[in-house]
Write a protein that binds this DNA or RNA. Structure first.
Length: 662
RNA sequence: GCUGCUGUAGCUCAGUGGUAGAGCACACCCUUGGUAAGGGUGAGGCCGGGAGUUCAAUCCUCCCCAGCAGCACCA
């Protein structure tokens, strides 16, 4: 007999080899029906897998949403793999995990077939439904490694065989069988394919994916699906996707006339007047924040000699992502190469830090000058892989709210803490919640392990001392994610629909001051190396604006809104008055447009509402005579409110104040 | 960069081996209308670029460019 302890603390003595399903049945028929898996000593297991020794047992039902989804998605992936192999004999299976909203499976299509395309998806879905309807039990079997390798080899599954061959000897390896089909899998799974809702999944797309995630390996064909416990959840998910699509900054950017992108400068943004107004407000805000934080703003060259980049270490590691320019007068003759073989090279700056060190190095610095905080709205160019470009989020030319703090060893923690506070204030001003992560040393790096130990401790301690190394701040350490020269603290914003964006960062760097030979004179009269803290809060203006557009779904807070109010007329008799109203609002510092067009007020209301204009001031004969305006606020329940012009101005100017000035 | 898909009017998209269409936007006219689309008329396109097949290519083939979805990358 073995003893099973249930979550409520009660214990049952049962035969060795009893399954969780048996236990559920013994408790009651309702639970027996609802139980889909079990946690045995915390580990997820199949409902039908015998328990061999004393254990704590918790039955998992569809109410345990996270566990149930995980199981279902994993099952969907298996069903997908089986369906594809049924329809396309000769396809090899590889891996198919669950994802945040579903699952995928990577296949090697048959040699004569080529990649799968979206046109294949409906057929595959149909086959998946057939497999689910067949309701084959999913059976777990323990195999030896040799057995696995042989089976996969015999069945032409070279990828699986390769993987199995690398598994450690002696580990308990399992396969899951569904009828005639099987896959190596750790499990667990639902009891049978029929437990899945055949209407709660949808294959969404196909794409390439490298075998084992490595660019050097074969390109496999990945099929993605979204999968849920029931069809209602699927429908809700599809609605959420649609909502996210409506917030897409590329779409809103065009509709709101903020910016555009075009082939001739792909990856670089053409800012239109309205979009650039958002930028200007952000820049003014950030200047105030940095001025108040003891930063001093500088401006450094766009182009520097390649030798400078060699010395900083960027040339060796990141040259392929830099824009390189010959330092030579181009050949103007019709014949011959544009540039000679002897040309010296310059490069557009991909980052600001080396230039900031050069500013630091001008003149002799004393410990009394430290910490020296040099800030720059630095415009950088990076020749990103073309497939990586994405609207404002990933561009080839961007401007950072960058700064480098040169300080002594003793000042690091205080400076990092100060930065934590500044970042906190800024993100709160925009209404974001955020989490803080510490990205630790990567495999390939500069500098000694002792320096890395120190640098990681400093960042960690600063956050601990700030009281932010807590769950509330999403504190987490990410091994291997740091930059090649330094560990990074990262600020991840959570937007209105729950997505996260990494924006802010601070990194303590001892490598670059060393490489570029920066020093200061200490209290002792000797030369010392300063430490350099790289930091940014918005990250890049382009990307931050993209995030803001999506976060607010285009309806920006009034202080950032490019058009804060539109004065719209009902009849042309009110034109003069409308112009006078607009002039007064402008004189009060508001960004105002007039709409005197020969259109009905319905039409104007609709158009400005769609354009996300927050305040519509409607004026007709009545208002002109009374010196009032009818204020209609976007998204507000009140239909409209008639105010005196003075009251309207007072109200709007108060609302349009930047949060740090309010 | 890799895989797949896409590229037709300012935008969203139809379409055909014989040089093209809709809705919205735009211009003009009628309408002066009180809170989410009033009516009419009109202008607008080297059908992403190059090469090939063909009597004939926006349509078929190949190459290039860009975009989209992933993958890989992100100092």
């Amino acid at each position: 007999m073995i003893r099973i302890t249930l979550p409520d603390g009660t214990a049952r003595d049962v035969e060795r080899g009893t399954t969780p399903a048996d236990v559920a049945a013994a408790i009651g028929p309702g639970l027996a029906k609802a139980a889909i898996a079990a946690r045995v000593n915390g580990e997820m297991r199949d409902i039908g897998r015998p328990i061999e020794e004393d254990a704590e047992l918790a039955l998992v039902t569809s109410r345990d949403v996270d566990d149930a989804l995980e199981l279902a998605r994993h099952d969907y992936a298996h069903v997908l793999a089986e369906a594809v192999q049924n329809l396309f004999p000769g396809t090899q299976i590889t891996f198919g995990p669950s994802t945040d909203d579903g699952f995928y499976y990577d296949f090697a299509p048959p040699a004569d077939h080529g990649q799968f395309t979206e046109e294949d998806l409906p057929r595959i879905e149909e086959e998946m439904r057939r497999i689910i309807a067949a309701d084959a039990p999913l059976e777990r079997e323990v195999w030896t490694r040799t057995q696995l390798i042989e089976w996969f080899k015999d069945h032409g599954e070279t990828f699986k065989a390769e993987w199995a061959a690398e598994l450690p000897e002696g580990e308990e390896l399992t396969i899951y069988r569904a009828g005639d089909w099987l896959d190596m899998c750790r499990g667990p799974h639902l009891a049978s394919t029929g437990k899945l809702d055949p209407q709660a999944f949808k294959l969404t797309r196909v794409s390439g994916a490298y075998w084992r995630g490595d660019q050097k390996n074969a390109m496999l064909s990945r099929i993605y699906g979204t999968g849920w416990l029931d069809r209602k959840q699927l429908k809700q998910h599809l609605i959420r996707l649609e909502e996210a699509g409506k917030r897409d900054h590329r779409k809103l950017g065009r509709e709101m006339d903020l910016f555009h992108l075009q082939e001739e400068a792909h990856g670089s943004v053409f800012w239109h007047p309205k979009g650039y107004m958002i930028w200007r407000e952000l820049e003014a805000y950030m200047r105030r924040a940095m001025d108040g934080g003891g930063y001093r703003e500088i401006k450094t060259p766009q182009l520097m000699d390649a030798r400078q980049w060699e010395q900083s270490g960027h040339w060796g590691k990141y040259r392929e992502n830099m824009f390189v320019i010959p330092d030579e007068v181009p050949n103007t003759a019709d014949e011959g190469a544009l540039v000679s073989d002897e040309a010296e090279w310059m490069a557009l700056k991909p980052m600001n830090c080396p230039a900031h060190v050069l500013v630091f190095k001008q003149g002799i610095k004393s410990y009394r000058d430290l910490p020296l905080r040099l800030g720059e709205m630095g415009c950088c160019h990076r020749n990103e892989p073309h497939g990586a470009l994405h609207g404002l989020m990933r561009v080839r030319q961007f401007t950072q709210d960058d700064a480098h703090i040169f300080c002594t060893e003793d000042q690091i923690v205080a400076e990092v803490r100060k930065f934590c506070e500044l970042a906190d204030r800024v993100y709160k001003d925009f209404g974001f919640t955020y989490s803080i992560k510490l990205a630790l040393r990567p495999e390939q790096r500069f500098g000694s392990d002792a320096d890395w130990d120190k640098a990681e401790d400093e960042l960690r301690n600063a956050v601990i001392e700030s009281g932010m190394a807590t769950e509330e701040f999403g504190w987490e350490e990410l091994p291997g994610e740091g930059a090649f020269y330094a560990p990074k603290l990262e600020w991840h914003l959570t937007d209105a629909i729950g997505r996260t964006w990494q924006v802010g960062t601070i990194q303590s760097d001892r490598v670059l001051p060393e490489r570029l030979d920066a020093s200061y004179i200490g209290e002792d009269g000797d030369k010392h190396r300063p430490v350099m803290l790289h930091r940014a809060i918005f990250g890049s203006y382009e990307r931050f604006i993209g995030i803001l557009i999506e976060h607010f779904a285009g309806k920006l807070p009034l202080w950032l809104a490019p058009v804060q109010a539109v004065v719209a007329t009902i009849v042309s008799d009110a034109d003069d008055y409308a112009n006078a109203v607009a002039d007064k609002l402008r004189a009060a510092g508001l960004r105002v447009e007039t709409d005197l067009r020969n259109e009905k007020i319905n039409y104007k209301v609709r158009e400005h509402s769609l354009a996300k204009v927050a305040n519509l001031l409607v004026v007709g004969k009545r208002e002109a005579e009374e010196g009032t305006v009818a204020l209609r606020v976007l998204g507000s329940d009140e239909h409209q409110k008639v105010l005196s012009l003075e009251d309207a101005i007072a109200r709007l100017t108060a609302e349009a104040k930047a949060p740090d000035l309010g």
